[in-house]
Nucleic acid binder design. Structure first.
Length: 902
RNA sequence: GGGCGGUUAGCUCAGCCGGUUCAGAGCACCUGCCUUACAAGCAGGGGGUCACUGGUUCGAAUCCAGUACCGCCCA
């Protein structure tokens, strides 16, 4: 029983000539959704096709990247659905730890002048939930405007209770397997957010900096050793000076000590191969607590580790007189003080690589802190294997290399974050009577509180530590109830992941690791990596540049179908897209073309007041009984279906869509429709309507995955249909080779060339296209078939080139004052007495002759080469011979025509 | 420093597991058309030594090597 909202929407009663998507699109979306067409269920009789939508951040707003990737995922989902698969496109959203916390903190600050610390953890997290409840769904609502046909009944959130359980379960498992450990290490510290970040969240940016040369006085003798540094403020934490063991300049100093300027601490001079002799002065200050390499050196030499910084990147009490200063202020002061003491030798300009937080864009501070890590190597190995042995395929392939490179050099993953919003780390500590944590008693890793009085780790997990479980946790893993077990068995592994290369490491690779480790299977078989959307100058779209293009505005302006069409056609394999809003005109124009093409035959159909046809126009004629142009069109259609199939199998959606576009516009509209139009004032006969409907129907089915709205709307205007017989669930067209007629199509192709030639002649001679003319087609006597076909289809010449009198035969005399067109073995004479400009015609023919000669010379050169004749495949040689014969004959006729013009 | 991608018409880009007049599309441009489906359109046209150099091959925009410039990723 259809509910009110699921009733098929009425068609617009009054048709306007320009297609207006604004009312049509939302109506069909409601219709599809309320009829459950997006829903997927376990159906043992059907093969599933599953795509997991990369969950957008709850703070997110739809941008062009989403629009592109959703368009692709939706096209694949709709296509598979039509092909009879049980198509599941699973939507959801990501809690996005730092991003979301930042948004709420900012609102708090701006609206109430308070910080999260003013509220306290519990109240703050409560606030974030309120925010998520209010705004978290916006992006998913926006996705509906695009037409996403995902199964909203299965929508998941990375902080759903069940999902949270999965995340914590994974933590516990990995810990028990020895793959998670805690330790004090140098991590990437974001002073703005005051949290650790993973290596992947750090961007290295080249900046103009300086190289300061500083003298460290040697103890026990006069003299100095000069070190060079790009970060002088870290000298407060120096615990050694290092030189290369083979550096003759310094060899005698190794083992001695220097007095650290400003603080006066005594530190050793050590020898380490890491030091580059040619860099700076050849001596390096070592600050194990604030530099990755120094940390390693410090470890090798058992150096002290002195942390001189607070979490907010101010200098701590270990910095003596500089305590309390911001790191950059401290730098200036230290340089000034060194200079004042005569210890600054010189300053050079120097380009430095500065690590930047991809979150806050603040300069990252390498800082020693106690964090949780995942041992990645054991997880990476199977992930490498899965791609190497072909269980997973990347499209385009080259991304597999990026993937290998990262996995083969993988470093442990810092997963703890000093945030409040996210999955709390399932680790518990004993407390002392005063409530503080008693580290001496160790910790317990457990989802639930192990014993009363224990407190949970304050930190939360990296957001990606939850989203790497997305493909299976969304299906209920690791629950073992019957429902979940069967869902996983049916829908998992999924078929294809569509995403951008920007999260290849963050997410795609980690999902593969997690999938293999926890489910024993790959999470998806194909990975389709899209290019990224850039602005028209090739720059990343960003808020700060203000160069973003809002997909919703574009949808308003051009329609979702148009946006989808343009994005798909622009999305070539792996290439970034330089997007300009005018590109959407392409899609809009095409939608308009589709809309208007319907009218060519639609105006002759019996249509009810609701815009729906009253009768079903069904083809009565067998293929052989069809008109030439009809057989040609069916041939083109079937060939295109086959080609589209191949393109889609390789994820070449742009090529598939281009072919459908050409079929619809270039063949169907420009030739077929023009030829089936009845003469003015006459009706279109039913047989003609029936085939026009059939062809149109199949083409809008081909277009439906890409342009779902307009195709659904027109689908219902083509035939009377029962409730629920929607385009979205119609059967995808398959190639019918029985309805291909290559010979007929070739004859039609010949006519197309002739017609184009005649149009060209008219245009070149300034004859109005509508001017009625006569023409003669001369063919060799043996071309009986062609002669007959042309005679029978003289109407085509009338219709398309206004040739009202066509004579076809062999040995026809060339009329005086005529232009001529050579097509293969045929010659078309166009008598244009009184209209023809002889000079023009001579010029035109000369041009053609020149072109043809160039072509023939090329062919003859090939054939004159004995190597070619003997080595090239026989059919290629034969093809060249045929070309030579044709061109020679054509040239002869062209020359004759020119000669006869005098 | 290592790796990858790009360089094709004025612009934006397809084509790239070699051979169909393969040199294409859209936009822009020029000419002519409000031809009762569509001016968001129709018909016709101009425009490119496929970055450069060399190689493989009977044959290269397409495969290989190198060079230049642009961009990205990693260190």
């Amino acid at each position: 029983m259809a509910t009110e909202s699921s009733a098929t929407p009425p068609a617009q009663a009054a048709r306007s000539t320009a297609y207006d998507p604004t009312t049509i699109e939302p109506r069909w979306y409601r219709y599809w959704e309320s009829n459950g067409f997006f829903r997927a269920e376990r159906r043992p009789d059907k093969t599933p096709h599953v795509i997991m939508m990369p969950p957008p951040n709850v703070t997110g707003r739809l941008h062009m990247g989403h629009a592109l990737q959703d368009t692709i995922q939706d096209a694949l989902t709709r296509l598979r659905r039509m092909q009879g698969y049980e198509a599941l496109w699973m939507p959801g959203k990501d809690h996005a730890g730092i991003a979301t916390q930042n948004v709420v903190e900012r609102t708090l600050r701006e609206q109430e002048g308070r910080t999260r610390h003013d509220l306290g953890r519990e109240a703050f997290v409560e606030r974030v939930w309120q925010w998520v409840d209010e705004y978290g769904d916006i992006i998913l609502q926006q996705k509906r405007r695009l037409g996403d046909s995902c199964d909203w009944s299965r929508e998941r959130f990375t902080l759903d209770a069940r999902y949270e359980r999965a995340v914590q379960d994974v933590f516990v498992r990995l810990y028990e397997e020895g793959l998670i450990y805690r330790g004090d290490y140098l991590v990437n510290w974001d002073p703005e957010n005051r949290t650790a970040l993973s290596d992947e969240e750090v961007e290295n940016v080249e900046r103009d900096g300086h190289l300061w040369y500083v003298r460290y006085p040697i103890e026990g003798e006069d003299g100095f050793i000069t070190i060079a540094t790009t970060r002088p403020e870290t000298m407060l934490g120096d615990t050694a000076v290092a030189v290369h063991p083979e550096d003759e300049r310094y060899r005698h100093l190794v083992g001695k000590t220097v007095r650290l300027p400003l603080l006066g601490r005594s530190i050793p001079i050590i020898a380490d191969e890491y030091v580059k002799m040619e860099f700076g002065a050849g001596a390096l200050k070592i600050t194990p607590a604030h530099d990755k390499n120094d940390f390693e050196i410090g470890r090798r030499h058992g150096l002290d580790v002195i942390n001189i910084m607070n979490p907010d990147a101010t200098i701590n009490e270990r910095g003596g007189p500089y305590a309390g200063l911001d790191r950059f202020e401290a730098r200036e002061r230290i340089v000034a003080d060194l200079e004042a003491q005569g210890l600054l030798v010189k300053v050079e300009d120097h380009t430095v690589n500065v690590p930047i937080s991809s979150r806050s864009k603040e300069v990252i501070e390498p800082l020693i802190s106690r964090q949780w890590f995942v041992r990645m190597e054991p997880l990476a190995k199977p992930a490498i294997e899965a791609v190497r042995d072909g269980r997973i395929t990347f499209y385009p392939e080259r991304w597999a290399n990026e993937y290998f490179r990262w996995l083969e050099n993988i470093r442990d993953w810092c997963i703890s974050r000093q945030l409040w919003w996210g999955h709390r780390i399932p680790v518990w500590y004993h407390t002392r009577p005063d409530g503080t944590i008693d580290e001496s008693r160790g910790f317990v890793v457990s989802i639930d509180q192990p014993e009363p009085g224990m407190v949970q780790d304050e930190d939360v997990l990296d957001t990606w530590f939850s989203s790497w479980l997305w493909p299976f946790a969304t299906l209920g893993w690791p629950d073992e109830d019957e429902q979940t077990r069967q869902d996983l068995a049916y829908f998992y592994p999924t078929d294809v992941l569509v995403s951008g290369y920007d999260i290849l490491f963050f997410w795609i690779a980690r999902m593969i690791m997690a999938g293999l480790h926890f489910t024993g299977e790959v999470p998806y078989r194909d990975v389709f990596i899209t290019g990224m959307i850039k602005d028209k100058y090739g720059r990343w779209m960003s808020k700060s540049l203000g160069n973003g293009i809002d997909p919703l505005e574009m949808i308003e302006q051009y329609g979702a179908d148009a946006v989808r069409f343009s994005l798909t056609i622009l999305c070539a394999q792996g290439q970034d897209i330089k997007l300009d809003p005018t590109k959407f005109e392409m899609g809009r124009n095409f939608a308009n073309k589709i809309w208007n093409a319907f009218n060519v035959f639609g105006q002759f159909m019996e249509i009810g007041e609701d815009g729906r046809p009253l009768r079903d126009y069904r083809r009565q004629r067998a293929f052989g009984e069809l008109e030439l142009v009809e057989r040609w069109m069916l041939t083109r259609l079937n060939q295109t279906i086959a080609a589209v199939e191949e393109d889609i199998a390789r994820y070449r959606l742009n090529e598939a869509l281009t072919k459908i576009y050409q079929l619809f516009w270039g063949d169907y509209c420009d030739w077929y429709l023009e030829l089936i139009k009845p003469p003015k004032g006459q009706d279109m006969d039913e047989d003609t309507i029936a085939l026009a409907v059939e062809l149109y129907e199949r083409m809008i089915q081909l277009l439906h995955p890409f342009m779902p709205f307009i195709t659904e709307e027109l689908w219902w205007r083509l035939r009377p249909r029962r409730d629920g017989e929607a385009c979205i669930v119609s059967a995808w067209p398959t190639r019918n080779e029985a309805e291909e007629d290559p010979e007929g199509a070739a004859v039609f192709g010949l006519m197309q060339e002739m017609i184009s030639g005649i149009r060209n002649v008219k245009s070149q001679h300034g004859v109005a296209p509508g001017k009625e003319i006569t023409a003669l087609v001369n063919l060799p006597a043996e071309a009986v078939g062609s002669i007959e076909a042309l005679r029978r289809h003289a109407r085509y010449f009338d219709r398309l080139a206004r040739v009202t009198d066509l004579t076809v035969g062999s040995g026809l005399a060339r009329p005086a004052a005529c232009a001529s067109v050579v097509v293969g073995r045929a010659e078309v004479f166009v008598p244009l007495a009184g209209m023809i400009d002889l000079d023009q015609e001579r010029e035109r023919l000369a041009r053609e002759i020149e072109q043809k000669e160039r072509f023939l010379t090329g062919v003859q050169k090939k054939l004159a080469n004995p190597q070619f004749v003997t080595k090239a495949p026989a059919e290629v040689v034969e093809r060249e011979r045929q070309k030579e014969r044709d061109a020679t004959a054509e040239l002869k006729r062209l020359r004759a025509s020119l000669a006869e013009l005098g």
